[in-house]
Write a protein that binds this DNA or RNA. Structure first.
Lengths: 207, 207
DNA sequence: TCCTTTCTAGCACACCCGTGATAGAACGGC
DNA sequence: GCCGTTCTATCACGGGTGTGCTAGAAAGGA
C-alpha cells in the first residue's frame, strides 16, 4: 500500500508523457514545462521526482531501453531451441524478433521515433553518450547471436562472414526504422516487413 | 566584379560556418548568434543576407542537397554506359557511387552528419518537410535507376524484385550512414565499405 | 493530537533566443 | 564633390528555458 502515490508509477507516468511530447514535437523542443503539462502535473511536482532535466532525460532513455530490451529478451526466451524447428519457422521467428525494432505499429513507431531522437542527441550531448553506445553494442550482440544460432542450425548459406552480416543486418534494421519513421508513406509497414523477409531469405541456405 | 563583397560567396561562407556548428554542437543548439560568431560576422551582417532563421536553415539544407546531388549526378555522367564494362567494374563503380552517401572521409562525414540532423528535424518541423521528402524520393529514384541499369546489363541475379531491392539498398545506406556517424568506432569506414560491397555482390549474378 | 516526511504549487532569477528598428560606415556611379 | 545603395554594427523587446528557493497542503506514524 503506497503512502499516497507510488513514486515509481509517477515516474513512469512522467516518462510516458515525455515520450508523447517527443513524438509530437521532437526532442529538441521537449521542455520540462511541456512534459509537466502533458503529464497534468505542476512543474514543481515534476521536479520533486526528477532533480534536473538531465536526470529526467537519462531516466527516460534508460526506461525505453529496458522496455525494448525486455521485449527482445522475452522473445529470445520464447523461441528457445532454434535448431529443433523447421527452417521456414526459424526464419519467421528471427524476422519477428527483428521486427520488434521496426515501426510496424503504433507502439513500435513510438519507440523507434523516440529512440532515433535520443540517439541523434547523443552525438553531441555527452549526457546520453554512454547509453547510446551500450544500445549500439547490445544490438550488435543480439544480431550476432541470432545469426550464430541460425548458422549453428545449418540454416545459413555457407561462406558468410558473420561479422559483416551482423553489421549489414544492423544497418538494414536501422535504415528501415529511420525511413519508416520519417517517410511512412514511402515505406509503409508491409513493405518494411517484406524487405526484412527478403533480406533474411537471402541469408538462408538455398532450398 | 563585385561591388564590395560577393553576396553568393558570403552566403556560402555563412552556410559553411553553419555546417561546422551543426557538426560540432548539433542542429538543435545551432543559433543565429552561434553561426554568426563561427563565420566571424556580426549577427546584424548575417541578417542582412538571410532575412530570418528559417530562411538560413532552408538555404543551408538546399545547399547541401545541391552539393551531394551534384556529385552524384557527376558520377552518373562519368560512368556512362554501364553495359560496356566488365561486371566487376560495374559493381565497383556502383559501390563507389553509393559510397558517396557514406561517411568514409571528413567531407562525407560532415555531409552525412548534417543531413541526418536536418532530416530528424524535418520530422517535426514543417519548414524542412518538403526538402526531406524530395531527398528521400530522389535517393530512391537514384537507387532504382542504378539497379535497373545493372539489371539491363544482365549483372543482377534473376528473380529479384527491384522495387524491394531498391528499398533494401536505401535502408542499408541510411543505416550505414547513421551508425558510421554515431558510432565511428563500432563501424569504421573500411567496415562500412566492406558491408556495402558484400551487399552488392549478393545482388550480382553468381560467377 | 502533534510532528515528520512526502508532495504540490508557485515565484523569481539569470540566461539565451529570434527579431524589429535604427544608425552609421563603406562603397560605386555621377 | 555628392547621393543612393549596400553593408556592418548595436540596442531593446518579448518570450521561453532550467533551476534555486520557499511556502503550504496532504498523509501517516507516535
Amino acid at each position: 500500500m503506497p503512502k499516497h502515490v507510488d513514486p515509481d508509477a509517477r515516474r513512469q507516468q512522467v516518462v510516458d508523457a515525455l515520450f508523447r511530447v517527443v513524438v509530437r514535437e521532437g526532442l529538441h523542443r521537449t521542455s520540462l514545462r511541456g512534459v509537466a503539462n502533458e503529464a497534468q502535473l505542476n512543474i514543481g511536482s515534476l521536479r520533486h521526482y526528477f532533480a534536473s532535466q538531465q536526470e529526467l532525460m537519462r531516466f527516460a532513455m534508460q526506461s525505453m531501453i529496458d522496455r525494448v530490451g525486455g521485449r527482445l529478451l522475452a522473445r529470445v526466451e520464447q523461441i528457445g531451441d532454434l535448431g529443433s524447428r523447421p527452417r521456414p519457422e526459424q526464419l519467421r521467428l528471427a524476422a519477428e524478433l527483428l521486427a520488434e525494432l521496426l515501426p510496424l505499429d503504433e507502439r513500435r513507431r513510438t519507440e523507434v521515433t523516440v529512440f532515433l531522437d535520443f540517439n541523434a542527441a547523443a552525438r553531441t550531448d555527452p549526457a546520453f553518450g554512454d547509453l547510446a553506445r551500450k544500445v549500439a553494442e547490445g544490438t550488435r550482440w543480439l544480431l550476432r547471436r541470432i545469426l550464430a544460432r541460425l548458422d549453428a542450425a545449418g540454416s545459413l548459406r555457407p561462406g558468410l562472414d558473420l561479422d559483416i552480416e551482423a553489421e549489414r543486418l544492423a544497418a538494414l534494421v536501422d535504415g528501415l526504422g529511420l525511413s519508416g519513421v520519417l517517410h511512412p508513406d514511402l515505406l509503409p509497414p508491409q513493405k518494411s516487413w517484406d524487405v526484412l523477409r527478403t533480406h533474411l531469405e537471402g541469408l538462408a541456405r538455398a532450398g
